[in-house]
Design a protein around this nucleic acid. Structure first.
Lengths: 234, 234
DNA sequence: TGTATTTTATTTGTCGACAAGAAAAGAGCC
DNA sequence: GGCTCTTTTCTTGTCGACAAATAAAATACA
């Protein structure tokens, strides 16, 4: 007669618990359901996800390694705040990585990569046609990460992926306060990059990637520097 | 009367367990005490480090996020093998990052950075004077990471640190099979970089960093491509 | 009312146990 | 000796419990 009650765990394969928690948390952080700066409570999460705290903690360690959460000993883990004061570091890095990854894709891509890249571009077109800003942000990320993967350099892909995820946290801020993004511009720019990559034209890939990055950076900068002062008569 | 025996844990502050395990494992991976490809046994580690498996697992998740170990569900974690077939990706990334970080240091460094950079350079000089190859590798890493930090871009610092750690796993291979590294060359190159950073000479910093990276890359390539065939008379 | 201290409640870090999954060992057959 | 199947052993993933550390609430004092 065992004196430890047998716990019924959800119907999930053993070994998939950490990933389950990681995927859910990651998505909630990236779609801002868990806002930057907010506190993460392991006990509540364990209840919500119907699992023990241990795999949740492991998922949080993994997310911390990706900079999406910030942990300090004996204190609540928080969703990593967006460092608006130092956005220039993000702009610098993402511009360079857009260039590097697109160049490398033009150099190393295979035919199977082209099929994947085109499929991701089509996802973006569909999101733009639906006028769904969050889906556009997410599909844009997938498109560019697929390009990075076609470039066959895991180090760059890792950094670029991290930067694009950071972009997924920043971009909704200005998408929601501006009129909708000019969707056609993104569609056209993506098509141009595809053509350059297909043609193995490294210089064109670089140039188009730079322009694409410049467009995104200038939009974020305009938003961050927008002037919301009231024009009061004194 | 409790029926659970009270466990005596080592004299360590609560909350520092994961970091303790992480630091030890990381150092053993980087100094090749835990060789690439080798299996990591949590139970043995728990005995060796005199702690429960849970913080060890969390440390392993963190190390996995840094690419130093590779985990698959329900299987032993292994120390990540060195991908010799794709070293070119490492060469490409580390060369670019040497350039980017050294340039940024020339642009953004403050006086406190110079003091730190010089101190790390002095560590390298001491290691070279002692003819200690592993210490030279480690102090070289510290020197360059300090330079990256002076550049104030966390994204680049993160990637560069990861690459330099990978270098800590690769370089001992050729240090041990070659005659000792020409230590004076590294000392001289470091001094040149310091002068360029001090002078805020971005172009010089870039040029010197490129040359430094080229030297390291060519040494690794020579080792990897060395010809160990026996010259047999047939 | 505001501040400092004490008490209570909650969260985090780690523990050891249980059991699923994998690896190793053993048995049987050709 | 090699191959397949079965059994045993070992390792991993997760569980819930305990207690240290922190946060929140309550109390005391000026």
């Amino acid at each position: 007669m065992t004196n430890k009650p047998k716990t019924v765990t959800p119907d999930r394969k053993r070994g998939s618990g950490v990933k389950f928690a990681y995927d859910i948390l990651r998505e909630e952080i990236l779609d801002l359901a868990l806002p930057p700066g907010s506190s993460i409570d392991e006990v509540q999460l364990a209840e919500r996800l119907k699992m023990s705290r241990t795999p949740i903690r492991e998922a949080l360690v993994r997310l911390a390694g990706e900079g999406l959460v910030t942990t300090l000993p004996n204190r609540s883990t928080i969703v990593t705040p967006i460092d608006f004061l130092n956005l220039y570091t993000f702009f610098d890095a993402i511009t360079l990585m857009y260039r590097v990854t697109t160049r490398l894709a033009a150099e190393y891509r295979g035919p199977e990569d082209m099929a994947l890249i085109r499929a991701r571009a089509a996802d973006y077109v569909a999101a733009a046609a639906a006028g769904d800003a969050l889906a556009m942000i997410a599909t844009n990320r997938e498109f560019h990460v697929t390009i990075a993967e076609a470039g066959r350099n895991p180090y760059y892909t890792m950094l670029f992926t991290r930067l694009m995820d950071e972009g997924r946290r920043i971009m909704p801020l200005y998408y929601s306060s501006y009129d909708s993004q000019p969707a056609d511009l993104g569609v056209v720019e993506h098509a141009g990059m595809i053509a350059a990559i297909e043609a193995r034209d490294i210089a064109a890939a670089d140039r188009l990637a730079t322009a694409h990055a410049d467009g995104i950076v200038s939009q974020i900068r305009s938003f961050v520097a927008r002037d919301g002062r009231q024009k009061l008569a004194l």
